[in-house]
Design a protein around this nucleic acid. Structure first.
Length: 576
RNA sequence: CGGGGAGUAGCGCAGUCUGGGAGCGCAUCUGCCUUGGGAGCAGAGGGUCGCAGGUUCAAAUCCUGUCUCCCCGACCA
């Protein structure tokens, strides 16, 4: 490709509305341009990287036996009404009517459409297992799109759906996809973890997320340093505490803590560490039910765990008025004693092991010290309702401790069970001619998000450092001075030879000063660069520079070509 | 949806408080010059100041409304 005839509108200054590095660099490198909030044009260079990744996904899914198809992005409301999600999905589902006043939506995901197709076409156990996938544009009207391709409203997603005769066959399909995902992200050279995850609104029995590790990630994940356990913090289990040694209970006293509303304030005021306090929080189901949650003062409540524990569909923090109604106390001094309304009290497991704690007196400006379980206050149920912390013991192995990371969710696999096949009545006849419900799994990969995550993980102050597998071009050839006929001839020859070898080459033939070309080549992240200049050429040499290491080699032309080909091929070789 | 911020040339911004010539840097175009890390000189083009209404002799600037975008939060494969 001739740079001068291609279209790479690079930008020197960082656009003011881009916050994270991948967004900034994709804009600066001329890969994307915003059309509207969360909606982007993919410019030629950006599209090349996206296609690269799509093809890796295709190759690995085909290898795993999945079958590609394509579903429409516009979907009829009836299917969503049938599955029950028309009412449930909320404003994220973009709805509209056609000229005949029939209701439609832009597909945010395709469980309904694929299940509808399958229930019409798959009738026999002989037709399974089967796994359909597509790479297609989704639309989700996110409350707050941000970070460029990281969280768009319109975005490209690979979604796959497996159909099996029973639960154990479905587990097998799930495992295949899980392994395919590992290969996909490994081929991209990404540093990632597969973690246990909450199933959220998609539902189903269990799921794993594939997380690219990056400080800018929106998710917190933990992994055990000793065993394979890894989980999203939303889901990560805290190990039930060893039974603590029994301590002598001191007499409880009420003490004034004027205006001390936070745990930090109270602990400091009383001269104690935060782990000696118990904090009390009130949550609502949004439908008039409340729960009081007790946690050790230095711990954080995990709303998802509490929600699941209560069996609620929604969970929201109670408002100050609601708290006053329920407890009779203003926020900041809550405790489980003498509460006005009868609400369940759920305490984190570790509260069982606490003695002589500080707890809100349920009265303005008052706390209790030396409060003890059972003697002084009652708990209805103990449950794991806190977020794990870095350094916590691993819930699966004896010696491990949990490490904490930030991650970008690039893939998610779910065991759906019969959630959709049941509501949409997708059944088959088994070997005995008996009707059975199909078992499903679904599997997503954010295409644009993965490319963005790769940039998030691979960049420096000069720009993107693409892994070879995702680079829009494998290498570039830079002619330092385009007016020098010898330089141009040599550069062109190198360019042609590399292309003949099957490499994707960007030939920077622009009539620009060298500095401009170097800056642009660095910015757009081409892994290898051959620079042809008059000085080196006089000695028959050119320069080969590796974007990643900055390593610079002065080599004879043929050798530079050979090495470039070798490096690219080595990087692209598929595992096994 | 709550809180905060911003819309002035393709990009980054000043000007708005205190009303009166629409500006700066980069980019673009022309010419000269230059060619190993975003050069230099000279010249040129480009903006109904987000939109609508109001106040005024006069509005980018004051008032009202409205739209869009960004950040934080809640929310979310």
């Amino acid at each position: 490709m001739l740079y001068s005839r291609y279209f790479i509108p690079t930008v020197k200054e960082t656009p003011s509305d881009a916050e994270v590095v991948s967004h900034q660099l994709m804009l600066r490198a001329g890969m994307i341009r915003k059309l509207s909030a969360g909606i982007y044009n993919y410019l030629p260079l950006g599209l090349r990287s996206i296609r690269k990744f799509e093809n890796i996904v295709r190759e690995e899914l085909n290898r795993a036996g999945a079958i590609e198809m394509l579903m429409p992005s516009v979907q009829p409301a009836e299917l969503w009404q049938e599955s029950g999600r028309w009412a449930f999905y909320g404003k994220e589902l973009l709805r509209f009517k056609d000229r005949k006043e029939n209701e439609f939506c832009m597909g945010p995901t395709h469980e309904e459409v694929i299940t509808d197709m399958v229930r019409r076409e798959i009738k026999s156990y002989r037709q399974m297992p089967v796994n359909f996938y597509q790479i297609q544009t989704k639309f989700r009207d996110e409350i707050r799109p941000r970070f460029g391709l990281m969280r768009g409203r319109e975005f490209i997603m690979k979604d796959a759906y497996s159909f099996d005769v029973d639960s154990s066959a479905a587990d097998c399909s799930y495992e295949k996809m899980y392994q395919a995902y590992i290969r996909i992200f490994e081929r991209c050279g990404l540093n990632f973890r597969a973690v246990e995850a909450d199933t959220g609104s998609i539902g189903g029995s269990s799921s794993h997320e594939f997380m690219v590790l990056a400080d800018s990630g929106e998710d917190a994940i933990v992994s055990c340093h000793a065993c394979r356990y890894a989980a999203n913090v939303e889901k990560a289990e805290s190990r039930s505490p060893h039974t603590a040694k029994v301590m002598e209970m001191l007499p409880m006293e009420k003490t004034a803590t004027p205006d001390m509303k936070s745990i930090a304030d109270v602990a400091a005021f009383l001269g104690l560490t935060e782990d000696r306090t118990i904090k009390t929080m009130v949550y609502s189901s949004g439908t008039g039910e409340f729960v009081m949650a007790l946690l050790r003062g230095d711990h954080e409540l995990n709303e998802i765990k509490l929600k699941n524990c209560m069996g609620w569909e929604e969970i929201v923090m109670a408002t100050e008025e609601e708290i006053l109604q329920v407890t009779g106390s203003p926020v900041g001094f809550l405790g489980p004693m003498d509460i006005k309304a009868r609400v369940p009290v759920i305490a984190d497991l570790i509260v069982q092991t606490m003695y002589n704690s500080v707890i809100g007196a349920n009265e303005k400006d008052m706390h209790l010290i030396n409060a003890n379980l059972e003697r002084d206050f009652h708990v209805d149920r103990f449950a794991d309702i806190r977020n794990v912390q870095a350094g916590d013991p691993c819930p699966r192995c004896e010696s491990g401790k949990l490490e904490m990371w930030r991650g970008i969710e690039v893939g998610h696999v779910f065991k759906l069970g019969t959630k959709y096949s049941k509501s949409l009545n997708a059944t088959y006849l088994d070997a005995n001619g008996k009707e059975q419900i199909i078992f499903m799994g679904c599997y997503g990969i954010g295409i644009g998000r993965t490319v963005a995550a790769a940039i998030e993980q691979n960049h420096d102050e000069n720009g993107i450092i693409f892994p070879v597998a995702l680079a829009p071009f494998h290498c570039s050839v830079v002619a330092v001075n385009t007016k020098d006929a010898g330089v141009m001839a040599a550069a062109e020859e190198i360019y042609l030879k590399l292309e003949q070898a099957g490499l994707e080459v960007l030939f920077d033939d622009r009539d620009e000063r060298p500095g401009v070309k170097f800056k642009d080549n660095d910015l757009i992240g081409i892994p290898l660069r051959i620079v042809v200049g008059s000085k080196g050429l006089a000695e028959g040499k050119v320069e080969l520079k590796l974007r990643k290491t900055g390593e610079m080699l002065s080599l004879p032309i043929e050798q530079a070509i050979e090495q470039t080909i070798q490096v690219v091929q080595a990087a692209l070789t598929m595992p096994e």
